[in-house]
Computed example of a mutant assay.
Amino acid sequence: MPQVLKDEVFERIFQAGVDVFYEKDYRSAKMKEIADKAGIPVSLIYNYHKNKEELFDKIASSLRINFDKIAAEEEQAAGLPSEKYRDVAEDYILDLLENHKIFVILMDKSQGTKYEYAKDQLIHSIERHIHRQLDKKTHVSYNDMLCHILASNFAEGILEVARHYKDREFAHTMLSLVTKCYYEGVNSL
């Protein structure tokens, strides 16, 4: 089979896997459903991926998430927290959301895989970032639960934008409003 056809079949399997894992989840998705969506015999998938886990891994690993790196860059930047977010993190999150289906798969639909704690890791990364920022700004000792709640809410806000993603402009508008509330309060709207 010429390389072009192999690449095209690989891409069809990949995209069908994204769609089926997004519609269902890792555990519920069947290779037959992925093959049907790709318009190929199920046996052909096994020429490219030895099993469902390997296909899922290929999809999940295609999205690189490193909030610790972005948080560190944001912490080093100058300006108000909202400016630092806009200058450092906003484009990173918008780029991430262009792969919104894979992001949702990782965060919500990866139970039973090595990625099943991805959402917890994201929340923990944001939580550490908030904690470090509070430590810099105040001498008040807050209960760690505050950082956890704020981080969970922010992560869930990003996920809601991903779940309802229409296009980059929609994501930008929604994230701008969410972060405005996050940094200035709901009365700022």
Rank of each mutant, 00 (worst) to 15 (best):
D36N: 13
P81Q: 06
K32V: 11
E11T: 09
G112P: 08
N153T: 10
K137T: 15
E75G: 10
H100D: 03
R12V: 04
L106R: 10
A151T: 06
H129L: 09
H172I: 00
S28N: 14
G39E: 06
V104M: 01
E156M: 09
L44W: 08
T138A: 08
T173G: 02
V140N: 10
A155V: 12
K58P: 02
Y182F: 15
F14G: 06
E127N: 07
D120G: 09
T113S: 05
R64S: 11
H139F: 12
F170T: 01
D95L: 12
S125P: 08
I102C: 01
E156L: 10
Q3S: 12
E98S: 01
I149T: 14
G185H: 08
K50Q: 06
L146N: 11
N153P: 06
L159Q: 03
Y46A: 07
V161A: 00
V104R: 00
K166S: 03
F10I: 09
E33A: 11
E160I: 00
S62L: 13
L80V: 11
H129I: 04
E74M: 12
Q15M: 07
M174P: 01
D167Q: 10
L94I: 13
R163Y: 06
E53R: 01
L177W: 06
Q3E: 13
K24R: 14
G112K: 06
Y115Q: 00
I93A: 06
I105Q: 02
D91P: 02
R128K: 15
K84M: 07
E23M: 00
S125G: 13
D68M: 12
R64Y: 13
K24V: 08
L177C: 08
L134E: 13
N51G: 06
S43P: 02
S152F: 11
P81H: 07
H124P: 00
A60N: 04
F103I: 08
Q15E: 12
Y46R: 09
H131C: 12
K50I: 11
M145G: 14
S82P: 01
H148Q: 15
D144Y: 15
M174K: 13
V20W: 02
H131E: 12
L94F: 10
L175K: 03
F56R: 04
Y22K: 04
K24I: 08
A118Y: 04
L96H: 03
H164E: 11
I13H: 01
I70Q: 14
M1N: 03
K180G: 03
S43M: 14
E83I: 13
L177Y: 09
S28C: 10
E73I: 02
Y115W: 07
Q133V: 14
L63W: 05
A151F: 08
H124K: 11
S82I: 11
I126L: 12
I102V: 07
P41G: 02
E11C: 05
F103Q: 07
E98G: 01
K30I: 00
E127D: 05
I59P: 02
D144T: 15
I105E: 02
K30Y: 02
R163N: 09
F10R: 13
K101F: 06
I45A: 08
H172E: 00
E98L: 02
R86N: 10
